[in-house]
Design a protein around this nucleic acid. Structure first.
Length: 396
DNA sequence: TCTGGGGTCCTAGGACCC
DNA sequence: TCTGGGGTCCTAGGACCC
């Protein structure tokens, strides 16, 4: 038994064009066609995912749907069916979970697998990956790309390398050679701003970036970003996918079909968003202290404001009241709004009992009501129960 | 050309406390 | 001539990802 000294082996498994692939495997007539999943053409919104056939027309995720229609007018435009994608994702993730001693799901269509020390039992990593790909293709008719490397960060880059239907292994000792096939801007974690800054500094290749000492990168890019670049370019894991998360937040937001400034109507939207967020919070068995309001103006300028209560938030009504006060604080009441969002932060588990809170009595009662409403709602999900008093007061 | 929705993490300044 | 200083919480904004 020498597993402790075994070389680390990580997989990054990534389902190709996941939403579009599910649509194509659910409806075989869509195979080979440019499938675009996202907002309804003619309305506000973006592309959530698109098939590889659609990509040949220049369509990409997050592109405005209007632009997609212009580039590919004959494409098949479909709405997002999140429930269905989650259903398929759960089944596939279960298979991945069984394939390795440690599995870590990082999004609906991606996971890391730690196969360190399994070679004697399972065979060479590339063979294990091949088997996984085959199984998922057979059972779900969806292609999986796999990257294999000595750490998670490199595995993630490797899975992108051969997409779609890719399988790429970065062998120990070949880390920097592999990295040098790409540009600094291609690194996961380097977005638009950092890419621009790199270009300004005339850092356009990996070897060039590697020539910078860490201290200098920290001076140029800031502590977190500088260290990140240094680790990444040397093939070390910058530790982005370490696992546990410190804080948590839940939010719900909506972009209006047309910008609006009708205060009473907007407050009704805040009420609905508050209700949505509190329902999810209770469903997750959590409680929160902070309310966050997000607004986006007609010119796309976006602001957030937040208030932390002295006690645990106990009802939709309370979240609504705080959010309305934040709206009054952040908005002049005249500029048309494009988006409104409500969120809660500072979340902990409901059963985590710290010291008793000052308003425990009152809070507990309101929360009980909230929980009951939620139970009924989930039982009869089509019936939309809202609190009549809130609606009535809102109409005053 | 007009830009969704749901998140996480980092930074920096101010308040407050010992 | 001076301003302590360190820790923690809160807030707003920014960058990034799927």
């Amino acid at each position: 038994m020498n597993t402790a000294s075994a070389n680390p082996v990580f997989f990054h498994a990534d389902l190709d064009a996941f939403f579009a692939s599910v649509e194509q495997s659910d409806n075989l007539s869509l195979k080979g066609k440019p499938v675009i999943v996202g907002a309804t053409p003619g309305k506000r919104g973006v592309v959530s995912a698109c098939s590889y056939e659609a990509r040949t027309f220049g369509i990409r995720s997050a592109m405005p749907i209007s632009e997609a229609v212009r580039k590919c007018p004959h494409g098949v435009y479909l709405p997002v069916r999140m429930d269905r994608y989650i259903e398929i994702s759960n089944k596939i993730m279960h298979i991945l979970e069984e394939a390795a001693p440690v599995m870590m799901q990082i999004s609906i269509d991606e996971a890391f697998l730690d196969l360190t020390g399994t070679q004697r039992l399972l065979g060479p990593p590339a063979m294990v990956a091949q088997q996984l790909k085959k199984r998922i293709k057979t059972e779900f008719d969806i292609s999986l790309s796999v990257g294999i490397a000595s750490n998670k960060f490199l595995a993630k880059l490797a899975s992108q390398y051969g997409k779609p239907d890719g399988l790429y292994e970065v062998k120990p000792g070949e880390e920097e050679t592999f990295l040098d096939t790409m540009k600094p801007a291609d690194l996961w974690g380097v977005g638009k701003k950092t890419a621009e800054r790199l270009l300004e500094l005339n850092i356009t290749t990996m070897p060039a970036l590697r020539g910078f000492p860490e201290a200098l990168l920290v001076t140029l890019f800031g502590k977190a970003c500088g260290s990140f670049l240094f680790q990444a370019v040397h093939g070390l894991d910058p530790g982005i996918f370490s696992g546990e998360t410190k804080s948590q937040s839940i939010s719900s937001e909506t972009t209006f079909e047309r910008d609006r400034r009708d205060v009473q109507g907007l407050k009704k939207v805040i009420l609905a968003l508050s209700h949505e967020v509190m329902s999810r919070l209770i469903e997750m068995g959590k409680k929160a202290k902070t309310v966050v309001l997000k607004i986006r103006l007609d010119n796309f300028e976006t602001f957030q404001a937040q208030t932390t209560a002295k006690h645990w938030l106990c009802s939709t009504e309370e979240v609504y009241d705080i959010a309305c006060r934040l709206l009054e604080k952040k908005w002049n009441g005249k500029t048309p709004l494009r988006l409104l969002g409500v969120g809660v932060a500072n979340i902990v588990s409901s059963d985590a009992h710290f010291q008793p809170e000052l308003f425990e009595e009152k809070g507990t009662k309101s929360q009980k009501i909230e929980e009951e409403i939620f139970k009924i709602r989930s039982k009869y999900s089509r019936i939309n129960i809202t609190k009549a008093r809130l609606i009535k007061r809102d109409q005053d």
